[in-house]
Amino acid sequence: MRKKIIDAHIHLDAYREEDRAAILQEAEDDGIDRLISVSSGLASSRVNLALSKEYPQVLTAFGYHPEQPLPPEEELADLLQFIRQNSEEMSAVGEVGLPYYLIKDDPSLPLEPYIELLEAFIQLASELDAPLALHAVYEDAPLVCGLLEKHSIQDAHFHWFKGDDKTVERMKQNGYYISVTPDVLYKPKIQKLARDYPLDQMMVETDGPWPFEGPFLHQVTHPKMIHQSVDRIAALKGRAVSSVYRQLYANTTRFYRIS
C-alpha cells in the first residue's frame, strides 16, 4: 500500500458516475486517505453532501464557484441557508473566490458584484468558524488577501495558486495555505512556487476532473496522480519523500480539522 495522502481539492460531483465510483472504490489501495470535495453551487453542494454521507473518505466544502454567472438572489439565499443548516457536515466554505478567467474572456463583466459575493462567503465562514477553499489567482489574489485581512481570516486555502512574488510573500506572512496540482511535474512556474513556499503551509490536490498535460495527457484525472506530485515536491525541496508525505498529510488534517 502506498503512503497515505489527502486530495485537498477535487470536484467529485463533476465526474462521470463510473469514474467517480472507481476513484472511491480504489481510494484505500491508492493511498488516498481523504478527498476534500468542493462545490460549485447549490446543486453541487447537495450532491457532495450525499457523497460525504455515503463514503466516509469524502469530506465536503459548500460554496459557489466564481467562474460562472452570478447566482439569482433566491438561489444564493437558498445556498447560504443550506450551508448554515449543514455546517456540521462540512469541512470548509468553498469553492469561492473571484472570476479571473471569466473576466479575462469578457472584460465588460463587472468585478464588484463578485467581490460582494465573496465577502458574503468570507463573513459566513467567519460566523461558522470554518476554513475557506479559495479560487483566487493572478491579479485577483491581492484583492482576496485584502478581504481576508479585513475580516481577520487566517484559515485560507488558495487552491492551484498562481500569482506574483509580492502576493506570495504576503500569503506566506499571513499563514495562508496553497495546494499544488500534478502540473508541478511539467510547469516551471508551479515548480518555482513549490520550491519557494513553506512546506508547512502546503497541500496537494488534483482539482479533478480538470485534465492535465505532460505525463497525464489524455488521462482521466485521478487522485493517485498526487503521488507523483509528492515525489516532485520532495525533489524540488531536497527533502526525503517520506518526510514530505508526513508533512503534507499533517498540514491537510490540521487545516481541514480532520480527526
Rank of each mutant, 00 (worst) to 15 (best):
E205M: 08
Q201W: 10
T221Q: 14
M225A: 12
D196N: 11
E205V: 03
V230Q: 07
Q191M: 11
D200H: 13
Q191R: 12
K187C: 08
L193S: 12
Q219H: 08
P223S: 05
K192D: 15
F216M: 01
H227P: 01
P198D: 13
W210K: 00
A234E: 08
R232I: 15
F212T: 00
R232D: 12
D200N: 13
E213D: 07
F216N: 02
I226Y: 11
P215Y: 03
Q219N: 14
Q201F: 04
V230D: 05
M202E: 04
L217F: 14
M225R: 08
R195S: 14
L217C: 00
I233P: 02
D200G: 00
E213C: 00
T206S: 03
V230F: 01
G208M: 06
P211D: 03
P198W: 05
K192R: 15
P211C: 00
T206K: 04
F216P: 03
Q191C: 08
Q219S: 14
M225I: 05
L185C: 03
F216T: 10
Y186V: 09
P188E: 09
R195V: 02
M202K: 01
A194R: 04
L193I: 06
I190Q: 03
T221G: 06
I190F: 11
R195Y: 05
H218T: 12
M203K: 08
R232G: 13
P215Q: 01
A234T: 12
D231S: 15
